[in-house]
Design a protein around this nucleic acid. Structure first.
Lengths: 207, 207
DNA sequence: GTTCGTTTCAAACGCTCGTATGAAACCGGT
DNA sequence: ACCGGTTTCATACGAGCGTTTGAAACGAAC
């Protein structure tokens, strides 16, 4: 018998690792239970369907990331006072928690980054409702903050420029160093955040 | 017996449509042969493995797109003369053919857009060599053109800013209007290209 | 009509999948 | 010790998968 009380988290850890490495559909329930060293039926018992497990794996990471994003927005709005925060600061509140949430000092780090990129690009049937619930408040807050920072920009332009920004972010999280030529050095999340914030802030300020 | 001589292209069309709609792994060989109204063994006969079929589906679209990109780069370099083309023009040469290639006046249009976004974000084992072959010359040309247009930028910065740009492009092609709020109007490829070029050109010019 | 290479066909192979089931084990409360 | 709810277990179910195989059909050349 597996060590009691740990089955659930072992499944979540193994699933996260494998889903990150190989994608959601190329990982079977048996792969996960093998990796977690638990019985096959444990997934059904603890989570229900594979789709439910996917949602649980994702949710345990995205919820704290988006909470941190909202908290960061609160903090920057509070300390900016009447004029509101600058574009760079707003983008940082959006980008940094995602990158930090995907790079804890654990071995799940690369896995979650890829999983994050994957699930946010192609949620699949089970995740769309979860994503909508999770992201609508955050996107409304981002929209409001960016409108204040860039009052001449239409909401439509804000939407599209924000979509380009998170498209680039998700793409990086998913692909990391794929196809990077040898002449370009790899970057960590910190450096990537700086580069993306500079790029996107300039893009937001485009005429 | 299926109408002779058409089997191969019927398979390619059906596969493209289904891979685009549902992703590579969620579409079985039987789904494709059902959609194409051909015999199950036809895929093995004409293409070999499923992986080989994926590569063939993708290759028949990406090759003309990248050819058009290189031709567009040729044309703008020729007509710009000594000073070289502007960043916007370079980005247009990169972005527009991809969007045009994915929106022919056929019913495969949305399918290829998603397939393009998907394969370029996560190629999978069979496609990496093809992608490398297809993209290395293009990326070298883009690098050279952008260096000329922005001589103060390091090659590293050019690489990362280009990655953000195509990350955003691929993300849009894959997700289109997912999560777009009702207050924002949908855009066609033409309008998207204009917006992304403006955004990215400003991002390239960031300090 | 015959031959031969190509193409299509029906069926099989060997395997894996996600989900479900009933029994056994566990643990805490009485 | 007994009970009951929870958890783990081994196994089965029903279905589907990608690949292969040998025969039949086809079409062009002689």
């Amino acid at each position: 018998m597996t060590e009691p009380g740990k089955t659930r988290s072992r499944i979540l850890d193994a699933a996260e690792l494998l889903f990150g490495e190989r994608g959601l559909d190329r990982v079977s329930i048996r792969d996960i239970t093998r990796g977690a060293r638990v019985n096959l039926a444990a997934i059904n018992y603890h989570f229900g369907t594979k789709q439910d497990l996917i949602a649980a794996v994702f949710e345990r990471r995205i919820v704290p990331v988006n909470k941190a994003r909202l908290a960061a927005l609160d903090a920057i709005e509070k300390s900016a006072g009447k004029r509101g925060p600058k574009v760079e600061t707003i983008l940082e509140a959006f980008i940094r928690p995602a990158l930090e949430g995907s790079e804890p000092a654990s071995k799940g780090s690369v896995a979650f980054s890829k999983l994050f990129g994957r699930c946010l690009s192609e949620p699949g049937p089970g995740l769309e409702a979860l994503l909508k619930r999770q992201f609508e408040p955050l996107m409304d807050r981002m929209d409001a903050a960016l409108r204040k920072a860039l009052p001449h920009l239409s909401r439509s332009d804000i939407y599209w420029r924000l979509k380009f920004t998170y498209g680039a972010l998700h793409h990086w999280m998913l692909t990391k160093d794929t196809f990077r030529p040898a002449r370009v050095q790899s970057v960590d999340a910190e450096a990537l955040a700086r580069k993306l914030i500079a790029f996107a802030a300039a893009g937001f300020r485009a005429p």
